[in-house]
Simulated assay, not measured.
Amino acid sequence: MNRKVFEERLQEIRMSEFDAGLYQQFYRAVQPQISALRGVLAELQAKKKERQWSRHQTSGELDDGKIIEGITGERSIYRRRTEQEPPPGAPPDKPKRLRLVLDVSGSMYRFNSYDGRLERSMEAVVLLTEALKGYESRIRYDMYAHSGEEHALELVRVDRPPDNEKERLQIIRTMHAHAQFCWSGDNTLPAMRHAITTLAGKDADEAILVVLSDANLRRYGISPQELGSILMSDPRVQAHVVFIGSLGDEANTLLRALPVGHAHVCMEVSSLPHIMQQIFASSLLQNS
């Protein structure tokens, strides 16, 4: 019966058994983390302050419910519109907006045998797309990639998240193929500028940018100061960089030089749910 259901599922999404087995390899690698990240997403709360009536004020608009108190001489009979923090655990009225920007540069492919950076990025995509299923009311996301040739290669449209295993496999196949055959170079900074500019104008509870990078920036003359400046360039977007690869101590060196709380090192995909939890939690500490 299981085999029949499996074959019907493959036929439904037009996926071969080979492709299904390939996808399962990535899925099984992150299956425990999917559950962990879904737990994080379930606890997301609103960030935006809400305009509410504050009663018992000594000035403002007359509170109809306190007319009798006004006749008897009570002074606190007015109400005013004020911004109040949302109660803990309150779901956002508007969905949060998340953009994941992936590094698919040639160095990701070239040094994958060194530290598994490209494979880890592909696992991260499976982890995020699987975990975000069913949370569209809380968070809307898209995914872009950058390389020596591209600064905004669209992988996932915000209005068309991957619907099944075949579509998720296509995303990671595109990542692998681009990294394997693209020209050398680095477009990390243009990719970040493009993402921040795009997200800044979105009407959402908050906008969050997560950039995956292999930390191979010094080779292209990119300084931590430049990277940090872009990370903090627009208060409307909470921007973070996650170093998912490193030659020697490059990632940790960058981590120490970048704004605190906006840079992370992820050398094991199992740590990604915790990093995402940190990112969501730190954004709540920022002013709306």
Rank of each mutant, 00 (worst) to 15 (best):
R97D: 00
E61F: 06
V126G: 00
V126R: 05
V241G: 03
Q278G: 00
D19T: 04
S16M: 03
L199C: 02
N164P: 08
A152P: 04
S147K: 04
I34V: 15
E150Q: 09
E167D: 05
G185N: 12
A281K: 09
G221S: 08
H56I: 06
V237H: 03
A124E: 03
E74T: 12
E167Y: 06
S137G: 06
G134H: 09
L44P: 03
I244T: 10
V126K: 04
V237G: 04
M192W: 06
P190R: 10
S270F: 10
E149Y: 04
R97V: 03
R173K: 12
S16F: 11
P161H: 10
G201Q: 10
E17P: 07
H176F: 14
R157W: 14
R9K: 14
V101D: 01
I13K: 07
Q57N: 08
H264D: 06
T174N: 07
A200L: 07
R55Q: 05
R157G: 09
R120H: 04
I275S: 13
Q31D: 11
W53I: 15
P32I: 12
A204E: 07
R99Y: 05
V40H: 02
D203H: 09
D186F: 03
P162S: 08
P88L: 00
I275M: 10
L102R: 11
D93M: 15
E130G: 04
R138I: 03
V241N: 01
R168P: 09
P161E: 08
G201H: 12
A20W: 09
N112C: 06
E8P: 02
Q286S: 11
R99G: 02
A177W: 05
I171R: 03
R160C: 06
S271E: 03
Q25Y: 06
L98H: 04
H264C: 01
L44V: 08
S246D: 07
A263K: 05
A152R: 15
H264Q: 10
H146W: 13
A177T: 14
S213V: 05
Q277N: 15
L169H: 10
A90R: 13
Q180P: 07
A239L: 14
F243S: 06
K94N: 04
S105D: 07
T253D: 14
G65C: 01
P91C: 05
I222C: 13
R157K: 14
P32M: 11
S229D: 11
D163Y: 03
S16R: 13
M267C: 09
I13V: 12
V125W: 00
V210L: 14
M15D: 05
H56C: 10
P91T: 11
S59R: 10
L128Q: 01
E7S: 14
L217I: 00
S271K: 10
F181T: 13
R81T: 15
A177P: 01
S35R: 14
V260T: 14
G73H: 08
Y141G: 02
Q31N: 11
L254F: 15
A42T: 08
R38K: 15
V101I: 08
D115M: 08
L127H: 10
